[in-house]
Design a protein around this nucleic acid. Structure first.
Lengths: 232, 232
DNA sequence: CGGCAGTTTGATGTTACTCAATTTAAGTGG
DNA sequence: CCACTTAAATTGAGTAACATCAAACTGCCG
């Protein structure tokens, strides 16, 4: 469709390419299916079994768990091409929600077919492994910074991390990034309150480091931002 | 050796069983190797390339990252049978430390052989996937509780989580668990200071919930402990 | 006995939370 | 285009949780 070529990116792309030596696009359509969601709509929830492997194909989404205290923890943000999670390849049940942040398109891949392709082609297995490794490293990094860092460090880290991921997908001009996050999302991702996130963002703005508004992140002082983030 | 049968547990056991239809134990010895470490010794560090897949075979260890602030974040604790991390199966380089908490034995598996066995037997792939899924879920859970929970909730969660894992490996009597953690380790795992961990532990003790001393965790009021932990 | 690592306790400081109100931005229907 | 509604961002004041600093205490080992 209007989907960019990088549609399935990391794991996804590599899952798609080595189809059984049949026809190119026509044959693919019967094991993959497209779905569209509006902002705020839930793509998967922990109680439902999910028969297919889900890949975000355009837009932004986020994966989170709901705590019984009423709070939620955003585990990560999903960008175009991201697998919802690597577990999804092998597990029917997931223990998290995925919600659309913007308008999104998601691709549903038939699980059995995905597994077959992985078993068939070792390079696919390697690709999946790389995907798992990245996912794990991301989780570790966020844990470390949330557990050990100050509010400024947490937010700086989150932004840098997202910036890198966006950069790997598209060309950035003038250090401007499309950033459809609300302050509440940032808060839920790094374990702060919205109010406090707001204060830190104000500080960053006044300090000439960056400005996030109207869904656009603009970085003025990248070195300073990097200095704040405690690892990487 | 003196290693219990559950040596390689989750992934490990399944990696070992389906050897190429050759002899049983004699043939295995040439692709796996045993190493012994004392408490505090480092098994792997981020800068070194690691030619083999490492499995903890006895004792306790922990995986952590060192932040430039001087703090460290313990990512998880390793029990007998645990793979150091699932990434290790495919990646030579790891971006974390693993350090012995007690006397430990570790098994080094030749990576190429491990990969071959996974590729050969689909059930091994499934086992590895299950291992990744568990690892990811664990990471997500810890992140959520560290980001969103109070000091008491964090510690309660960590303890419950470790208790479950110990239970899955051995029989527990009287709610007594071997727990070789120092308070510093708890602090570094859940993002608190030692002093504060100490206070919370005192509270738990005075509240008749549990007592951790001399390397033994004894739980008196399990329901209350569970009530504290915000998820699971 | 002295030294060391770990634990415990107290006093004080600071970060980040809570509650509450105001302002701005973004829609929506007329 | 303008009144009306709603969601998001911003600001202030008071508070609670946790950090920091410092010291004393414990058990252990040489």
């Amino acid at each position: 469709m209007t989907c960019p070529r990088r549609e399935l990116e990391f794991c996804g792309a590599i899952l798609r390419q080595p189809a059984a030596a049949s026809s190119t696009h026509a044959a693919l359509d019967d094991w993959q299916h497209r779905r569209t969601l509006r902002p705020g709509e839930v793509a998967v929830a922990p109680d439902q079994t999910c028969p297919s492997v889900l890949v975000l194909c355009s837009g932004w989404a986020f994966r989170f768990v709901q705590l019984q205290s009423g709070r939620r923890q955003i585990l990560n943000f999903l960008l175009a091409g991201d697998l919802f999670s690597c577990n999804m390849v092998f597990q029917e049940r997931c223990n998290y929600y995925v919600k659309a942040l913007t308008d999104i398109q998601i691709t549903e891949l038939q699980r059995s077919e995905v597994i077959r392709r992985i078993a068939d082609d070792p390079s696919n297995l390697t690709a999946l492994a790389k995907c798992c490794a990245t996912e794990a490293a991301t989780a570790d990094g966020l844990l470390a910074v949330v557990a050990q860092g100050s509010a400024e460090q947490r937010i700086a880290y989150l932004f840098l991390h997202l910036m890198q991921r966006i950069e790997s997908r598209s060309v950035i001009r003038d250090q401007r990034y499309q950033f459809p996050l609300r302050q509440q999302h940032i808060a839920d991702a790094v374990g702060l309150t919205v109010v406090h996130v707001n204060r830190v963002l104000s500080l960053f703005r006044k300090g000439g480091i960056l400005d996030l508004s109207h869904g656009v992140l603009q970085v003025f002082n990248l070195p300073e931002l990097k200095r704040l983030a405690p690892l990487k």
